[in-house]
Design a protein around this nucleic acid. Structure first.
Lengths: 325, 325
DNA sequence: GTGAAAGCGCTAACAA
DNA sequence: TTGTTAGCGCTTTCAC
């Protein structure tokens, strides 16, 4: 028979290796869809696992049972390691997993881990600093931030980048221009509607996800403003784009593919860790590769702001760069 | 020790049960995010599995390796059964899985299976027929359909419902009012923009997903039309809503929670099948429960259309039902 | 090299 | 009921 595969339970018993990796995805809000970023990351990881004979064991856990999910999988010997999703700024799972003793890789980071650990992340702070700086260079002074829940490290770091750029430009922070919450279209719409009706409304938005940006766009349209002439938007995540003078110009390119890459690479990191009997000193990888770039593309009457690395230029539309607040 | 769990590999070897279910999710388009419906279904299934001591093994497979994914998992004895996602109208996996011999449950249906099989589905045809009929009752005659890829059974059935309603109302089909493709915001935006610039544009849209509806809304705003006054939209899937006279009135309620329920129930069906040594005659369940309902809610000057079952009424906003084309 | 045997941690069948 | 034992299908070791 040529379609024979060794029985995975027997192999597992004999070798002590489960040949499986656990992904425990927290569902923070019962009404919320599972974050599409997870799906993309998991898709990348799945590909790597397949190539190495590993399985991906997925558990969707509600907050109160999250710890149990890790403990069960480990105690049953069902997995050889874990990918940790959606790290909070301070995350109980760091201690838990050190306790459990299986190797793990974090997709993202925590603020201040007691012990070193492996992670893969994008440079959220730098990306938002660049995004904000770009808008500042274009003359914007009222720049709104619509961010994810800032108990999560990624959102917190994004805010740090936003604040850093404003502070460098000596623009004061305005609490009324900063929203955070569940990354939904509704958040974008509600927050933007509210801000646009202010006496001194923002002239630009930075959104922490694609879907939030859609909400912002809807609010702008409903406020009978025009994208590009009256308001600029930079969105982040799925489709980093910069809206400009009646045109939409892709500005930041990230994530569909880079999140998938992160999944592939995170899985590879973990497989390497599992391979070493000794749990090696933890590694940190690929920040550079996943950093988000920005550009204005080929501009007829204006140069690409110097703050933006040239090698990140990825614009396929012409910029009409008369968009000023 | 009270935190003891029997080793799953040993148990599996001894019992011949893997205590795991395989979910193979096809990634049809490399650029596409994994369908959020999958995530919701999987979340529901995961919950059921946890309650019964099963694991969920997830594989994201590209088209050419999809068959291998099933075969591998089965040959390795890694799973006791499968959930089949995203069935096409004619789907090679039906034969494949009959061949493999493990029980499976399909989330959705195929057109014409050679053998009976277990599935769980919503009533796509009826839902779209009702949606379309509602618009017809309101006086619309130019009703556009923006649908998923019609090689997939769910999209095909939705189209059948749409066509049935039009045909019943003796409204001729117009090919220029029917689009289908990947369910993205861009599809909604492109298709709607194009249709709204027709000489005889549609006065209402039916969209096959939440994200598509967002694209339609953006196109409408950009065309300087007003939702409810100039154009009506019914969207389907994540957040079935009906847009009306300057207000947004939830009309169809479905899916966030019902897709999750479908996941729970589908998993339960499969666990039951696995439990029976004899592969029982396949069952079909819960069409009714997952059927999408529609209503106009409490209307000040108009009754709920009779075509809409009263027990599906789920409106939490007041309808101002003067919206006519 | 090639082949036989022990054992991984359980379950199930059997004996007492 | 409770205790003992023979496998489940592999890998690994050890003897040849």
């Amino acid at each position: 028979v040529h379609n024979y595969r060794a029985n995975s339970r027997a192999t597992g018993l004999a070798t002590g290796r489960a040949m499986a990796i656990g992904h425990v995805i927290p569902v923070l809000n019962r009404n919320d869809v599972v974050n599409p970023i997870f799906a993309e990351f998991v898709a990348g990881a799945s590909q790597t696992y397949s190539a190495h004979g590993y399985e991906l064991i997925l558990t969707i856990a509600e907050e109160q049972s999250e710890g149990d999910a890790y403990r069960n999988l480990a105690a049953k010997g069902a997995v050889d390691g874990f990918i940790v999703h959606s790290p909070r700024r301070e995350d109980f799972r760091m201690d838990l997993l050190n306790d459990i003793g299986l190797p793990f890789v974090v997709h993202g980071r925590t603020d201040d881990p007691a012990h070193p650990y492996s992670w893969i992340d994008m440079n959220n702070k730098q990306a938002f600093e660049q995004a904000c700086k770009l808008l500042l260079d274009l003359g914007h002074r009222r720049i709104a931030l619509i961010n994810g829940a800032e108990t999560l490290n990624f959102a917190w770091r994004r805010r740090l980048g936003y604040e850093a750029a404003l502070s460098q430009a000596k623009v004061a922070l305005d609490n009324e221009l900063m929203f955070s919450g569940e990354l939904t279209e509704e958040l974008g719409h509600t927050a933007a509607s509210q801000m646009l009706s202010m006496l001194n409304p923002p002239t630009a938005f930075i959104a922490s996800s694609y879907i939030v940006a859609l909400g912002i766009k809807r609010a702008i349209a409903q406020a009978k403003l025009e994208m590009g002439r009256d308001v600029s938007v930079i969105i982040h995540d799925d489709e980093l784009s910069y809206f400009h003078n009646h045109g939409e110009v892709p500005q930041f390119t990230a994530t569909r593919s880079s999140v998938r890459s992160a999944g592939e690479l995170g899985a590879q990191m973990l497989i390497d860790l599992v391979g070493q009997a000794v749990l090696a000193p933890q590694s940190r990888l690929l920040e550079a590769r996943l950093t988000i770039g920005a550009s204005t593309g080929p501009a007829p009457d204006r140069q690409t702001p110097e703050s933006i690395p040239a090698d990140h230029v990825q614009s396929d539309k012409t910029v009409m760069d008369r968009a000023r607040p």
